[in-house]
Design a protein around this nucleic acid. Structure first.
Length: 935
RNA sequence: GCCCUGGUGGUGGAACUGGUAGACACGCAGGACUUAAAAUCCUGUUCGCCGAAAAAGCGAGUGCGGGUUCGAUUCCCGCCUGGGGCACCA
């Protein structure tokens, strides 16, 4: 009886479906464990061997935890809304709903091949109305909430209104525009529109105006990478910066909690670092500078407002205030118009026109030093110096106050700017500044710095801030790089916003009106003026009659994926997004597996949504993912053939002269290792190379090799279906794991898969012989056999627990090799081994389990318990080193005392030889490890 | 430029808290079984030296150069290099 993996795998896969083996219940006494794969987007390209890596790892952990007695939630579903599907639809004339459904079917078939233990009854698709009903519902929760900074949590807008009615907005500074101030009486006197406009500035999901790339000719908004040199990538039409109405999430209010929350979760340092950098918290001071009399020489007519005659800058280094040699404001700064002197007006206008002509991309690509003097001066509050105010594009309007105080001796950019425009540089750090480079140190001693002279810079920071606050011209200030997240797309294939517009006011739909369904239409061309395609469907937008017109933007891809892990817990609930008792049971995702590409997108948004839902009392935890495991990328190992220029002659790699050939990618699937299958090559690409001739090395055509990203265009993708067909799912699963540490990137090489396949066959032969049939017996195991088993139990358990799947596979091989050497065919040993193997190779394990005469499924067996008694040794073959060099081995009883060891070792002939009669200086004896003789 | 990661045989990798570097595989070479092939099994396989060969032995060796230690792939300092991320954030 031989190992017929095709039959076995098919049999058990259908048996497990019939017996609902993977169905997960929400109510059990067992402890829970939640393993989740990152939500896949079902693209039309299908899976290559890189995709299932994480799925196999999570599947192993799920099955392992189940055997360990946990109730394991391990679901799968589809992040199905999004741009690519719509793009595909426009280009191929297939409705996105249809192409998405097809892609999902295909995806599912490929997954099923590999034998995953997903509970498919819990599948979710973000594009199903039954799912996005709750995405819309959560959006309404965010819309109806604000961030109460006093309580550091989200709270209902109704609380805010109460507070406004009692105290105006004194208790709640407006996050959208902190200059907004009103009293209770003023609030009550506002019109509904005025009130709603103010509330919008507080809401966690809000509508505002933001700059986008608008292309009039195409009638659409373009992403940054669709704009090249100020024109559209497709068609070359002009693109302008335009302020358009957009929805946003006020994620900036959560910046501090997103930061501190990182301490409570197990993400890799790299991942935490990326999020920390993205949030970009910095603390410093806002300082208000008076503008000098000179700057009041205004062009006739406009009188500067009292407030705007001050320049407010943000700095993290208030200690350097005596080193300020100039000010720089962003080109968009509102003060420019007011402070520019008549003499400079022309130059400033020209400069601003120039800046406006440049795209973000250009600004970032060529870091030219550009700028223009406004003619105005600010006054240093401490020494009264007049400081020229410049404009430059290196200062960003969106960060801090859009204005900086420039300290060229301490800041590289300020230094280069000063040099470029010949602005004199004040040195406030003595020898620490060498005149050729700025020095950003905080440890230098200050000089030329008035009352700060002689102080260490680090210590001066606090002192200056306190002084500024005392004088009423500055205040402590924390800033973040992170911006509020744009939450609308001018697209069709996404969740519609449950919002009605009437008289310029956004009215939320009532919960009972959800889901607001996406209309099924044939055309998705963009609407006018940056509106989404939905604006072309008046019968949809006006379906609520007098109540208002529906919002025509749709939500972005990350809306549905920000909360999907909650829906899996309670996927069919029509009354709520997820029953609270159920989410209390499943709680956080214990293990989340996916790539690093979502470091600052999905992983930040879902953390924010979780915190908001927690604040509002809908769930009981405020971090979604307790532990994150990043799988490495599987790279492609490309193969090349070399065609002599202008011919159909292909030269084997060893004979190639680089100048005379074109290097061409060849499909890795027609190459065995590095040897090209010439016949297959002639048939490849519909016979394009049918007439090719070859110059061979030793009768073989050898291909060139390079490690690259795995992609169709490089012909280096390998389809898992092919491998499963050839070797079986169990082999495929184990080989993916055997390749190397799951979190490291490594190139794929199909060649090695045979080793894993051989291992499974070898294990099979412990049970069945091709000729003799059954060879397993009920004999009692020997001590030696038990030792092999229990060593393996310990190793596999430890390795699986710490996600070291590659070493676990090795340990299985070692175990089977040793049992084969021992000719061990004993049921008692083999049965335990099968349970250990179940998470890795479930089909063969189940088949042999049944063959051994067990009635229940091995999926529910209980994990073997390690017994140290079976592996204890009485003696050890110690490595003996002389001066750290290993010279020989001596077997010594483990309970020997140090004196006994010393005596034994020194008496050894080889040791004597190496000691060359020199006296023993020291003997290092590490019990159970090694012995080192120092002479 | 900054941050994170890695660098070990022909290849993928192992060595978990400093203690016999190269486990386990792939590949390669030789052999057994077979009319033959497949499958399977056995032996060898870091490099160099010594040797006709085998055995044994010696020396070097974990990107490079230093250091700490009885002992370093592992810890420290300085470089080189592959991959990923961020990039005018004041």
């Amino acid at each position: 009886m031989e190992y017929n993996f095709r039959e076995i795998e098919q049999k058990w896969q259908s048996t497990w479906v019939k017996s609902k083996a993977y169905q997960v219940k929400n109510n059990t006494d067992k402890p829970k464990y939640y393993v989740l794969d990152m939500f896949p987007y079902p693209s039309g390209a299908g899976l290559h061997v890189g995709h299932p890596l994480g799925y196999i790892a999570s599947d192993i952990v799920s099955r392992f935890k189940r055997l360990k007695g946990f109730n394991v939630l391990h679901p799968m579903g589809y992040d199905a809304f999004g741009l690519p599907a719509e793009q595909y639809a426009i280009e191929h004339g297939v409705h996105p709903a249809k192409s998405t459904a097809q892609n999902i079917d295909n995806f599912r078939k490929q997954l099923d091949n590999i034998g995953f233990c997903y509970d498919w009854e819990r599948e979710v698709r973000t594009c199903d109305a039954s799912y996005y009903k709750w995405t819309q519902w959560i959006f309404l929760q965010l819309f109806n909430s604000f961030y109460n900074r006093q309580l550091q949590k989200a709270a209902p807008v109704t609380d805010l209104i109460q507070s406004f009615e009692a105290n105006g907005n004194a208790d709640h500074i407006c996050p959208g525009d902190n200059s907004i101030r009103f009293t209770a009486a003023e609030w009550k006197a506002y019109s509904e529109k005025e009130q709603q406009d103010i509330l919008m500035q507080y809401r966690l999901a809000f509508c505002g105006y933001g700059e986008v790339n608008w292309c009039e000719a195409l009638g659409t908004v373009l992403a940054n990478d669709e704009v090249v040199n100020g024109v559209s990538e497709r068609g070359g039409h002009p693109v302008v910066k335009k302020k358009l109405r957009q929805w946003y999430l006020r994620i900036t209010e959560y910046a501090d909690r997103l930061l501190s929350g990182l301490d409570t979760i197990e993400f890799s340092e790299a991942m935490k670092e990326m999020q920390t950098n993205w949030i970009g918290k910095s603390s410093g001071a806002e300082i208000s500078f008076e503008l000098s009399a000179k700057s009041h020489e205004q062009p006739t007519g406009s009188q500067p407002a009292a407030q705007s005659s001050k320049l407010i800058v943000y700095t993290t280094r208030p200690d350097t205030i005596f080193g300020v040699d100039f000010m720089v404001v962003a080109p968009e700064h509102e003060l420019i118009e007011k402070i520019t002197t008549p003499e400079q007006k022309e130059a400033v206008d020209a400069y601003i026109t120039y800046v406006k002509s440049r795209s973000d991309r250009e600004r970032q690509a060529e870091k030219k030093i550009t700028g223009c003097f406004t003619g105005a001066y600010a006054i240093n509050p401490f020494d009264g110096r007049e400081i020229p105010v410049w404009i430059s594009e290196y200062v960003l309007a969106g960060y801090g106050t859009g204005a900086i105080m420039a300290v060229p001796c301490g800041d590289e950019r300020d230094f280069r700017f000063a040099q470029h425009f010949n602005i004199p540089i004040t040195n406030i750090i003595g020898d620490a500044y060498d005149g050729t480079d700025a020095n950003p140190t905080k440890d230098a001693i200050l000089s030329n710095s008035g009352f700060l002279d002689g102080m260490k810079m680090r210590d001066a920071i606090e002192l200056v801030i306190n002084k500024l606050e005392e004088m009423g011209i500055g205040k402590r200030k924390v800033n973040y790089k992170m911006r509020d997240a744009a939450f609308s797309r001018q697209r069709y294939w996404g969740e519609p916003f449950p919002i009605l517009w009437r008289n310029g006011i956004a009215y939320p739909l009532d919960e009972s009106q959800l889901p607001l369904e996406l209309p099924n239409v044939e055309s998705y061309s963009p609407g006018p003026e940056g509106e989404g395609p939905l604006s072309n469907i008046p019968e949809w937008t006006h379906q609520f009659g007098d109540k208002g017109v529906l919002e025509t933007n749709t939500m972005p891809g990350y809306a549905g994926s920000s909360w999907y892990f909650l829906r899996y817990m309670d996927p069919h609930n029509d009354n709520t997004f997820c029953n609270r008792k159920v989410s209390d049971y499943w709680n956080q995702v214990d293990l989340y597996i996916g790539g690093t590409e979502h470091a600052v997108g999905h992983l930040l948004y879902s953390r924010m949504w979780t915190k908001a839902l927690y604040d509002l009392g809908h769930i009981g935890f405020d971090e979604p993912f307790r532990k994150l495991l990043n799988q490495g990328m599987i790279q492609g190992s490309s193969r090349f053939v070399y065609r002599k220029k202008g011919t159909q002659t292909f030269i084997s790699v060893g004979l190639v002269n680089k100048e005379e050939v074109d290097q061409l990618h060849v499909d890795v699937n027609i190459v065995d290792g590095v040897e090209l299958d010439i016949e297959a090559f002639k048939k490849w690409r519909n016979g394009e190379y049918a007439n090719a001739e070859f110059i061979l090395e030793e009768g073989k055509y050898i291909c060139g090799v390079e490690v690259e990203k795995m992609s169709k265009s490089k012909f280096n993708t390998v389809n898992p279906d092919t491998l499963v067909e050839k070797f079986g799912a169990d082999t495929f699963r184990m080989y993916e794991m055997f390749l190397g540490p799951v979190d490291q990137s490594k190139p794929w090489d199909t060649k090695g898969i045979e080793g894993v396949h051989r291992f499974l066959k070898k294990m099979w032969r412990l049970f069945f012989d091709e000729n003799k049939g059954q060879v397993w017996t009920n004999d009692a195991p020997t001590a030696e056999e038990l030792k092999v088993l229990h060593r393996t139990i310990k190793k596999i358990e430890d390795d699986t627990e710490r996600f070291s799947f590659n070493t676990a596979v090795s340990s299985f091989m070692i175990c089977v090799n040793e049992l084969s050497d021992l000719k061990c065919h004993k049921k008692e040993i083999l049965e335990s081994l099968l349970i250990l193997l179940t998470p890795y190779a479930p089909h063969i394990a189940e088949e042999l389990w049944q063959q051994l005469g067990n009635s229940g499924s091995i999926l529910d067996a209980s994990y073997p318990v390690f017994n140290a008694a079976h592996v204890t040794e009485t003696s050890k073959e110690y490595p003996i080193s002389i001066n750290g060099k290993m010279r020989t081995n001596i077997t010594i009883a483990l309970d020997a005392t140090e004196d006994q060891v010393k005596e034994l070792v020194l008496a050894n002939e080889l040791v004597q030889k190496w000691m060359e009669g020199k006296p023993l200086k020291k003997l290092i004896f590490v019990k159970g490890k090694m012995i080192n003789i120092v002479i």
